[in-house]
Design a protein around this nucleic acid. Structure first.
Lengths: 137, 137
DNA sequence: CCATAATGTAACCATTGTAGTCACATATAC
DNA sequence: GTATATGTGACTACAATGGTTACATTATGG
């Protein structure tokens, strides 16, 4: 379970909320659909709240709602809110500073990774949470 | 160090080999440039060998060479050879089978992930190991 | 034929990131 | 005031990765 499922869970959670956007949804209810622990959901939605995607209400009758219309929340917003670890790829931590090849590789790889990243952003931006909900049928 | 640096190390190793493609390169020499352990390099190049990107020779004067011209080894080839864990993203391991939203999410997310992947492939295909080497100056 | 030098791999340890869990402070509704 | 939420810190469990040691295998070259 070491894979990065945060993005998937976040999209799932937002879809659950957006599916009945007039109601408040508790972390417990969302966790029921995702099959995980309510705390995991609260931690994740806490990140989304900081990014301005959801709002939370404490206390009885509390829970989560969308902070803006589902059509205006893109998967890129979700990705940025959740993906704190940087990019998809990673460079090797160390390198031999004395090797001329190694010294240049760092910059070259950075360029390659940046170009790849720039291709996925538009794709994620094209899909909104509303699109996801519409596919729920 | 939990990030996925295999791709970066593989590209680095291939660049080292391609930079002097007339010589054999030992795992020890390559590891020196990457600043890691020779076994790590051998394990990685073993995967690349299975994918037909490099060839290895046992014994004294042994080592690694490219299996085909650097211009014909694309970063997509490297990516496929190395990235055994599937895609960039992952679904949540479990889900609530009784929840109609959860049941549909799996398919929807698969579609999203596939569309994103399809965008990065052409970008990786566009760059060859020869291109990397030419950037080494 | 034997020493040397290299890959291929299995086995193991250390580190790290994620998920999951418990506990509790805080806030809100009725 | 009680019941019901979120927010968060602390902790455990687990899986993936990288690193290391060890050793079998294979090839070269005197």
């Amino acid at each position: 379970m070491a894979a990065n499922s945060k993005f998937a869970v976040a999209v799932h959670a937002l879809a659950v909320i957006a599916h009945h956007s007039d109601e408040r949804h508790t972390s417990r209810a969302i966790a029921g659909s995702v099959a995980t622990n309510p705390v995991v959901i609260r931690r994740l939605l806490s990140q989304l709240a900081k990014a301005g995607l959801v709002e939370s209400a404490h206390g009885a009758k509390g829970g989560f709602t969308l902070a803006k219309p589902a059509a205006r929340i893109t998967l890129l917003d979700v990705y940025h809110a959740v993906e704190d670890c940087g990019g998809l790829f990673a460079e090797h931590a160390k390198k031999n500073e004395k090797c001329p090849v190694a010294c240049r590789m760092s910059g070259i790889l950075k360029g390659v990774f940046a170009r790849v990243q720039s291709k996925i952003a538009p794709e994620l931006k094209r899909t909104s949470v509303a699109d996801i909900v519409s596919q729920l049928g």
